[in-house]
Amino acid sequence: MTALIFSVAILAGVLFVVMYLTLLERKFAGRLQSRIGPQRVGWPFGYLQPVADAVKLLVKEDVIPEVADRKAFNLAPVLVVLPVLFVFAVIPFGENLVLADLNIGVLFVLAISSITLIGIFMAAWGSKNKYAVLSGMRAVNQMISYEVPLVISSLVPVILAESMNLSDIVAFQDRAWFVFYPVLGQLAFIVFMVSAMAEANRIPFDITEAESELVAGFMVEYSGMKFAFFFLAEYAHMLAVSFLAVILFLGGWQGPWLPAGVWLALKVFMVFMLILWIRWSLVRIRLDQILALSWKVLFPLSLLVLLLAGIWKMW
């Protein structure tokens, strides 16, 4: 019974936080460009803007193209959102505050989050739209390439902590966060962040939904609540990435003076803001550059980091 209540609480909490993350991004983006951002709906900080957006998307007409493959078209948004929400089942929000304390937590997260790709390709294929199909192919290219450095770089904390359990990994960092391990920690963190951002389709790696060339990429035919599902998935993915980065490299809830929950929230917020900051400062890079970055830079770098972690552990 407690598990049920806890899971509902996590689900509601994640959805609520994700709703307000959109507002946070818009306000932050505004400030980064000398603007104010949304402020009219919910004067003076626009705190009702997400509600207004949600209502707008709910009452919008739901258009399904005549030629679309209806089954794939309707199933795709669900397949995109669900894996991301599954990730939150194994993320520890504090000591003993985790829904499913899997002893293969890292493996579960990496495995389940790559299912999103199937949903994206399904959406692209089901819409029978040339832009969507192009975008789906790019998505497959990009995701498969970045899965490799992502997995290898998230093996570094696993090797150092000798456990795949996320709670154990956090508990191991009570003296020094992994990011503070000389050279090894920083390199692994950078590789992890870059490939995780590519996985989450954020600028500079957002060629899958490149607005200026592909309109909206794989979600070009979607409208109303199905469109909102894709956005929900994107922001939930970013939130999950922030949580993972904090747990794997930044010591989770560990930290002096402040209580554990505050530390976790603070770190997640900082990582999320870092992602936003990068998104609003860089330009989109080309497909060939993205693949080159993955295979020529991040892949060798992640192997090197893995080697370093092994040497560190043996020594």
């Binding site: 980064l32 000398s34 900051w277 990068i278």
Partner: peptide, 21 residues
């Protein structure tokens, strides 16, 4: 160059918004 562009963007954060409501 990534650091430079991020620095330029960060400068805007400290500046007052130029928007007129």
């Amino acid at each position: 160059s990534v650091g430079q562009s991020m620095g330029v963007v960060f400068k805007n954060l400290l500046r007052k918004p130029t928007t007129v409501s």
